[in-house]
């Protein structure tokens, strides 16, 4: 697909639009910002999941577990008064650490078995959150009555309005895009894709497959935990039902529909599956929500059959082909 304008201009335009977005909605500000924040959170999550599914070809059906780990870690720490800026790296490290430990045994498994094992792990995390009442307050969620997730403070300000969170989330979305982009066009990123294309050939071309897979797996877990930590502070509440299996599937659907392994595709998938239904719900009423999942089911099947590469397929970058200077 050829774009009518060059990529840097397009990117600058998009960035500008994102920066002024809150001011385009004079009256109905709160809702527009809420949707934008939600899209932002899901973008971070899906860009993380895209590293395993899209680049490395590892289907993960329990990714919400890491969102949950990030959200719960953040909630527990911040209830005890730990600053957001300390909580955040801790969450990322905890998410990455758990992901690393999970990867040790499961990354050896074949694709579809890996999918089922991650599903099982996701459910275990949810059930544990549901049942370890002492730590997580069980199904009632955190914070408990009388407790509060502390505010984020930045240069002496308190972030307490949605617009503050909008810019905070935007900053992290841009970071996630940057990390994804740089990863994609690196030695490591090429190794991810090679593993997706043919694991054995990758190993026999000199790639330490077990290690590279583990790196991909851990980075994506970190993205998930990061998104969870931000979400917990934004909404100020976490409970186990936010992290069901179907939520994990929902993330996979966004990536599949948008275009696996393509940053733009993933963002489009999130906008289509998170943003559009929210907007339709506000215009068509709550009844629409009932049909949402029905439609998703059909769309998932249709996309995988008729357009398996997604709406925006991932495209390999062309490189300079001049003959290298004679030796």
């Amino acid at each position: 697909m050829k774009l009518p304008i060059s990529k840097p201009y397009l990117m600058s335009g998009v960035l500008l639009l994102l920066l002024v977005w809150p001011f385009l909605w004079g009256g109905d500000n709160a809702y527009a910002l809420y949707i934008a924040c939600l899209i932002g959170i899901y973008t971070i999550l899906c860009l993380g999941l895209n590293i395993t599914i899209g680049y490395t070809g590892l289907l993960d059906l329990g990714f919400m577990a890491f969102y949950a780990i990030g959200a719960y870690t953040a909630a527990i720490l911040s209830i005890h008064g730990v600053s957001f800026w300390l909580t955040l790296p801790v969450c990322v490290l905890v998410g990455g650490g758990v992901r690393y430990l999970l990867g040790l045994p499961v990354l050896k498994l074949r694709g579809d078995y890996l999918a089922i094992v991650t599903l099982a792990f996701g459910e275990i995390v949810r059930l544990v959150a549901n049942n370890t009442v002492g730590l997580t307050n069980g199904p009632k969620g955190l914070p408990r009555v009388g407790e509060k997730i502390s505010e984020i403070r930045l240069f002496g300000w308190s972030l307490n309005d949605t617009i503050h969170f909008y810019y905070l989330i935007l900053a992290f979305v841009l970071l996630a895009v940057l990390v994804s982009h740089r990863l994609e066009h690196s030695r490591l990123g090429r190794a991810f894709v090679a593993i997706r294309e043919d694991e054995l050939a990758a190993e026999l071309s000199g790639i330490h497959v077990a290690r590279v897979k583990s790196v991909a797996f851990v980075i994506s877990g970190m993205f998930g935990a990061l998104a969870g930590a931000i979400y917990a502070h934004w909404i100020g509440f976490v409970s186990p039902e936010m992290f069901t299996f179907w939520e994990s599937v929902f993330l996979v659907a966004m990536i599949v529909v948008g275009g696996m392994g393509n940053i733009g595709g993933v963002v489009l998938g999130v906008i289509l599956l998170v943003g559009v239904p929210e907007i339709l719900r506000s215009t068509l009423g709550a009844k629409f929500v009932d049909y949402r999942m029905l439609v998703f089911g059909v769309v998932m099947v249709a996309v995988i059959i008729f357009r398996p590469q997604g709406l925006i397929p991932s495209k390999r970058r062309s490189l300079e082909l001049h003959t290298p200077e004679a030796e």
Binding site: V193, A194, D198, A201, A202, R316, S318
Partner: peptide, 10 residues
């Protein structure tokens, strides 16, 4: 056994 969806150079 090539990486089918990568370019020749890649």
């Amino acid at each position: 056994r090539l990486f089918a969806n990568m370019t020749a150079l890649e």
